[in-house]
C-alpha cells in the first residue's frame, strides 16, 4: 500500500477548488431558476375547503380540554356524525387522485419542471466532471475506510493498490452533492429547491388523497378522551398567586 502519495498542487488549484465552487454556484442557480419557473396555480376550492376543515378539526382536538364536555360533544358530533358530519365521507364518492392528476395538465407540467430542473444540471455537472477530471486522485479523506468503500470513493480509478482514503474527482463530486445540502439550507433558507426531503414531501403530496386524511382525522377525533381542565384551574391559579405573594 502506498504510504503517501504526493498530489500536485495544480490539482488543488484547478480541480478541487473549482469543482466545489461550481457545485455551490450551480446549487444557487438551480434554486433561483426553479423559483422563476414555479407557476402559481389556482387552488381548487374543494381542496382548500377540506384542508381548512382538517385544520379546524385538529384545533378542536388540541383544545378539547379547554371547553366543557357538553360543548366538546356537540362539536365532535358536528364534525363526525354518520349522517351529515363534515368529516364523514360517504363511500364511493372519493375522487380518484390518479384521474384527477391526468385531468389537470398544469399539475403534471409543474412536476415535470421540478424534475427537469433537478436532473438537467446534475447530468451536465456529472458529464463535465467526467470529461475533464477523470482518471486521477483529487483528494484524500482524513480517516481510513475499508475496502468496501473503494467503489464509492474511487469511482473511475481502477487501481487496487491505492489506499482507499484517496478520493477520485468523480467521487468528490458525489461527496459535494450530499454534503452541501446543509450549506444550501443555510444560505438559501428552508424551502430551497435542492432539499431532497422537501422534494419527497411534494412528491407524496402529489398523489395526496384528501378523503383519506378526512377519515384519519375523524378517527382520531373519535378517540379523544375528553377531560375538562378548567375546574382544576382555580386551584392552579390559587397556587400561582400564593407563590407570587409569598
Amino acid at each position: 500500500m502506498a504510504e503517501d502519495l504526493v498530489l500536485d498542487t495544480a490539482i488543488r488549484d484547478w480541480v478541487l477548488i473549482p469543482l466545489s465552487v461550481v457545485m455551490v454556484l450551480i446549487g444557487i442557480l438551480r434554486h433561483f431558476v426553479s423559483k422563476l419557473m414555479r407557476s402559481s396555480q389556482v387552488p381548487d376550492a374543494k381542496i382548500v375547503k377540506e384542508g381548512q376543515l382538517i385544520v379546524r378539526a385538529r384545533n378542536l382536538r388540541s383544545g378539547a380540554n379547554f371547553i366543557p364536555p357538553r360543548s366538546f360533544r356537540a362539536r365532535r358530533f358536528y364534525f363526525s356524525n354518520e349522517e351529515n358530519g363534515l368529516l364523514h365521507v360517504p363511500k364511493g364518492q372519493a375522487p380518484n387522485p390518479q384521474a384527477q392528476m391526468f385531468s389537470d395538465p398544469n399539475m403534471a407540467m409543474d412536476m415535470m419542471k421540478k424534475n427537469l430542473s433537478m436532473i438537467i444540471p446534475q447530468t451536465l455537472t456529472f458529464a463535465w466532471v467526467n470529461f475533464f477530471f477523470s482518471g486521477f486522485v483529487a483528494a484524500k479523506i482524513p480517516f481510513p475506510l475499508t475496502q468496501r468503500f473503494r467503489s464509492m470513493l474511487q469511482n473511475g480509478i481502477d487501481l487496487s493498490t491505492v489506499d482507499v482514503s484517496y478520493v477520485s474527482s468523480r467521487s468528490w463530486y458525489f461527496l459535494n452533492l450530499f454534503g452541501l445540502r446543509g450549506l444550501f439550507s443555510l444560505i438559501l433558507g428552508e424551502d430551497n429547491a435542492t432539499d431532497d426531503t422537501q422534494r419527497m414531501m411534494q412528491m407524496s403530496g402529489f398523489g395526496f388523497d384528501p378523503t383519506k386524511s378526512l377519515g384519519a382525522e375523524k378517527d382520531s377525533l373519535d378517540i379523544v378522551q375528553h377531560d375538562w381542565a378548567l375546574p382544576k384551574f382555580e386551584q392552579r391559579a390559587e397556587a400561582v398567586l400564593r407563590k407570587v405573594l409569598s
Binding site: 498530489l7 500536485d8 498542487t9 490539482i11 488543488r12 478541487l16 466545489s20 483528494a139 484524500k140 479523506i141 482524513p142 478520493v167 461527496l175 459535494n176 450530499f178 454534503g179 452541501l180 445540502r181 446543509g182 450549506l183
Partner: peptide, 21 residues
C-alpha cells in the same frame, strides 16, 4: 446526522487544502 455529512465534507476540504498538497 444531517450535520455529519457537512462536517465530513468540510473537514476533508480544509484538510486537503492545508495538509495534503
Amino acid at each position: 446526522l444531517s450535520g455529519l455529512m457537512s462536517f465530513v465534507l468540510f473537514w476533508t476540504f480544509a484538510y486537503d487544502m492545508v495538509h495534503i498538497f
